[in-house]
Simulated assay, not measured.
Amino acid sequence: MPGVDSEELMWLQELTKNFSEENKRRFLSIYQGRRQDPQTILICSLIGLIGPAGIQRFLLKQIGMGILYLFTLGFCFIGTIVDAVNHRKLTWEYNKKEAIESAALLGLKDF
């Protein structure tokens, strides 16, 4: 899968180790449509320094934080800078949640 780092790949392999090949294909199809790329989150965070702040939070489905960032200029740019530094962690947490939800959606795991 393109754009997946080794830690995420190992976690996905552990999550899908008991899946049949057909279920793995179905899971990966759903997961690829839901996951976010860390570079996209970084770029959106950096855009918040010169334009509308909080785009990265909207992409991570954190609507409340996105609105808060938008109205406070990313907490006076400090929150935006912190998000730019922590973009990998934010993306990893989001992608992990989406992987679990994708597996649950297929009825493959009970979480």
Rank of each mutant, 00 (worst) to 15 (best):
R88D: 12
L106A: 08
F71M: 15
Q62W: 05
A84P: 00
L9I: 08
E7I: 10
Y31Q: 06
N95I: 04
S6D: 13
L106W: 06
M10T: 11
R57C: 03
L106E: 09
I47Y: 01
F111T: 12
Q62M: 11
I43L: 12
E98S: 13
V85L: 12
R35L: 04
S102L: 03
E7Y: 08
E101N: 15
Q13R: 11
D5K: 07
G3K: 07
T72V: 08
I81N: 02
E14G: 09
I63M: 14
Q32L: 10
S45M: 03
R25D: 12
A103M: 06
S20Y: 06
G3E: 10
P52C: 14
A104F: 10
H87K: 05
G54D: 01
A99P: 01
G3L: 07
A103T: 04
P2V: 10
K96T: 15
I67S: 08
R35P: 00
R26W: 06
G64K: 14
P52R: 11
D110K: 13
A104Y: 13
I41G: 00
L15W: 02
P2N: 11
R35I: 04
E22M: 08
L9Q: 12
I47S: 03
G74A: 07
L9N: 11
S20H: 07
R34K: 15
Q36T: 06
Q36H: 12
G51H: 10
K89I: 12
E14W: 07
I30M: 09
E21M: 08
P2M: 11
Y69E: 06
Q62L: 09
E8C: 04
P52F: 13
I43W: 05
F111G: 09
W11N: 07
E101D: 14
S45Y: 01
M1P: 02
